[in-house]
């Protein structure tokens, strides 16, 4: 079973991980003095840092394709170029956030505070001012400010990577942001075939063949019917609505119905 292609992809995957780790340390170290010397306040600096990370990740995803470990496609990416949007995606793989940032020039992301302990991510998270998710109540304020400042706020409502085969379960943070800011969410449906880089996979558990990641950006979800409800009840009902909506889109035949 294990032919030359398998070993190529194993080595190339190891290389890609190393490259990411190297870039995650070196890019922020080189960029930091430049970003601090450029004129403008904290916000301008973070917007520039996000653009830089966006370009860096774009290069990285091209390299991933060039290494023949994976292929990827995106549809509806233009919908991600609008300011002040809330991007909600399911979370099958470790690469999801890398791709979303590669598609979005001014992305603000809600990330686990644990990423600050990861040397490959710490520099990026610090420079861009990504929101680290440790407090529910403060999260709402940070999200509101970010959207008001015109960022595209990226959030995985599951709070962690999807467990393969399990039902989608969303935490209520995403719905609370929608309910309390009035911003209609922009859903992104991510599929990975064959599954890899999930929470159950280590980096060397590479799939039996080259994997394919697809990103479908859909039209904003209409949330007007939740407006009449109190915030706490609306957040609960909207959470269920979004779970069902995204689960249904995930089950849809990828190349089938429009």
């Amino acid at each position: 079973m294990r032919n030359l292609n398998y070993y190529w992809r194993l080595v190339a995957t190891a290389f890609a991980f190393s490259l990411f780790g190297f870039g995650g340390v070196v890019v922020p170290v080189v960029a930091l003095p430049v970003l601090y010397l450029l004129p403008g306040g904290v916000h301008r600096r973070q917007v520039r840092a996000r653009w830089l990370v966006h370009r860096t990740f774009r290069i990285f995803i091209q390299i991933m394709r060039g290494l023949h470990v994976m292929t990827w496609e995106v549809s509806g990416a233009e919908k991600l170029q609008r300011p002040g949007i809330l991007v909600l995606a399911n979370h099958p793989t470790l690469l999801d956030v890398v791709f979303l940032v590669a598609f979005i020039p001014n992305a603000d992301c809600i990330v686990k505070s644990r990423l600050l302990a990861n040397p490959a991510m710490r520099g990026f998270v610090r420079l861009t001012g990504y929101i680290t998710n440790d407090s529910g109540a403060r999260l709402l304020d940070s999200a509101r400010q970010s959207l008001a400042a015109g960022s595209a706020l990226v959030l995985f409502p599951e709070g962690t990577r999807t467990r393969p085969g399990a039902d989608l379960v969303f935490q209520r943070g995403a719905a609370n942001i929608v309910v309390r800011t009035g911003v209609q969410p922009t859903p992104v449906i991510i599929r990975c075939d064959p599954p890899t880089l999930s929470k159950q996979h280590k980096w060397y558990h590479i799939p039996p063949r080259k994997f394919h990641l697809s990103f479908r950006v859909l039209d904003d979800i209409d949330v007007s019917r939740f407006k009449a409800l109190s915030a706490t009840v609306a957040a609960r009902q909207l959470t269920r609505h979004m779970e069902e909506f995204i689960a249904e889109e995930l089950n849809r035949n990828e190349y089938g119905s429009p």
Binding site: G136, A137, L139, Q171, R172, G173, N176, A231, T232, A235
Partner: peptide, 8 residues
């Protein structure tokens, strides 16, 4: 009841 609910 999560932390956001607790505030409410």
């Amino acid at each position: 009841i999560d932390s956001i609910d607790a505030v409410d």
